[in-house]
Structures are given as structure tokens and as C-alpha cells.
Amino acid sequence: MLVIRRRPGEAVVIGDGIEVEVLESSAGRVKLGIRAPREIPVMRKEVQDTREHNRSAAREIPLELLIPVLKRLGS
């Protein structure tokens, strides 16, 4: 992983047309501004993780394997 130290107001560029600027930084939190071409999706990683988990949940699930595990929950 490439590691770069930046201060608020400074930016990095990725490829042709993507720019990530540090807008604010405070204890434990950083505010980023991202400029990217419209066709490049930009989202929090948790959003992508949840989309992938939902897609996986939407596939055919072998109920005979899953239900016994779930029935044990909370019992």
C-alpha cells in the first residue's frame, strides 16, 4: 500500500482525473473531498461491502444447511 502524509488543503491525484483532497482532519476523523469523472463510482467502502453482502444473500441459499444454524440463535 502506498502511504502519503497530507495536511488539510493538500491533495493526491489518482490516474487521469481523480483527485482526493484532505479538507479537514480532527481527532480520529478525516474529511475528504473527491473529484472524479461521473462514470467512476465513488462510495464509502461499507456501502460496497453491504451491496456485495446483499448480492450474496440474494443468491440461491441452501436452506437445509442454513436454517438449523439460524434456529439455534437466541435459544
Binding site: D49, H53, N54, A57, L66, L70
Partner: peptide, 17 residues
């Protein structure tokens, strides 16, 4: 919590969302 069945056959629940 939405439940998925992972590739390693371990069911997972999304508690984040």
C-alpha cells in the same frame, strides 16, 4: 440482519447495515 451464505459455507449476518 440480512443473512448470506459465504463461499466457505459460513453464514454471515450484516450487523453494520
Amino acid at each position: 440482519a440480512v443473512v448470506a451464505f459465504g463461499e466457505d459455507d459460513v453464514p454471515t449476518a450484516n450487523l453494520l447495515a
